[in-house]
Design a binder for these strands. Sequence first.
RNA 1: GGCGCGGUAGCCAAGUGGUAAGGCCGGGCUCUGCAAAAGCCCUAUGCGUCGGUUCAAUUCCGACCCGCGCCUCCA
Length: 465
Amino acid sequence: MDLILTNTATGQKERVYADDGKTLRFYCCGPTVYGPAHIGNFRTFTIQDVFRRTAETLGLKTMHVRNLTDFDDKTIRRSQEEKKSLITFTDYWKNKFHRDCEALNNLPPHIEPSALAHIPEQIDLIQGLMDKGLAYQAGDKSVYFRISAYESYGKLSGLKIEDRKENADGRLNADDEYAKEDFSDFALWKAWKPEDGPNKWDSPWGPGRPGWHVECSAMSMKYLGESYDLHSGGVDLLFPHHENEIAQSEGCTGKQFVRHWFHLAHLMVDGAKMSKSLGNLYTLEEIEAKGFTAEELRYVLISGHYRQSLNFTLDSLGAAKSALTKLRKFKSLLEKHAKNDGEEEGEFGVFGPAMEAMADDLNVAKALGQLFTIVARLEKNPEKICSATAENFSKTIYALGLKLEEPKNQSEEELVPVEIQQLAEARWQAKLNKDWAEADVLRSKITEAGWTIKDSKDGFEILKS
RNA sequence: GGCGCGGUAGCCAAGUGGUAAGGCCGGGCUCUGCAAAAGCCCUAUGCGUCGGUUCAAUUCCGACCCGCGCCUCCA
């Protein structure tokens, strides 16, 4: 089964393959570590993870590189506001990011280069562009890419420089106008300014730091080669970031930088773009504080098609919770019947239709639809389940990145106040005595106190309402 | 203004030139003192609006309306 994905560069669905015949080499633009990543960031990283898992499930070997941007305007400014060194500051947020990724069950990239650790590579790239006349040092000592010397600029995004000039009125700031040859030229090397504090590095052009776009070109080519298979990021990076990466990389090497561009639509919240001013910007921590799990969030984030923006609501997490419970139950049904030896037709057996949907442009919504249809069918005919069914289910679930583990017991009993515990036990006694009226009175007292009783055959559970 | 994406049931969301997957919610029933859980069943003559093509359109074409994204450093 081939993996098909829409290539932004051509607008066509194309087969994803390893150009060297061995390993699919791909790069994902990673986070800037200056604060907690929000669920919109994680939609991108999680769908990229589904992409990788699906590729692997279909038999492709992968080499996944994702960078960490650990110096830029924001990291420098905020570290200074907090009176911390840049490294201390970014390390904290790197660790936070890694913990969140793990909770969401995103596989760690094979290589995760940090921009700070690759400044020499970035300087080399800039020097290469200088040598070719594609870059120049301006009066402000910064180095810029000379777009007028690079003809195919704009080929990925389809944006025309002339159009942008017309729309740039009022947006230019005086420095840019003064320093750059052309307002569209973007910074490759930013000359040091007093507000950068101790954060400066030496270069042939004086002290300063690389511009943001260079790091992805320099690091991806270092680890994946001058030409590689696929590059991914949020749609907002299409222009200018990825356009600039192409200009820098192809300008320097003269070779095609990336064959396949994989862009992911944004997550909306309650029908609007996420922003701090609207107060609809959630982090994983906030989602968990509302009583949902990372797996429930993952389910929501992957459940829409990646080329379409997905509207996130808290209600959708509730829906995910129920859907996951259903899958979890099915998993234990499989485990009961998995001892039956048996074979299934095709690469993924009865789950073939679900994997076909995954392979066809990563249609997760369709795959989930197929999955639930198959689940319902097998639940009605459990005698058809065999060891191969369980294996094929595992493969499908792996591609989605779900775990379907039983929720952990959070030692609920200990958290329940003593008086509630006593009321509950009194009620259980009343129940055993078949004093239903007394039992109901006690139940409503417990309910009023904010707890819920769930009976089973030989005991009860106390849960927070 | 330019480029791009989208409008399918209460919500989320697939899909097709031949009569609408799936999930959630809701409703009914079963099972248990009740409740919860669980199980079974039901839930769009309709796919933004108006025209056109066609034996047949939600699916193709045209116009229009609405929402969203990008147009210099935001996944």
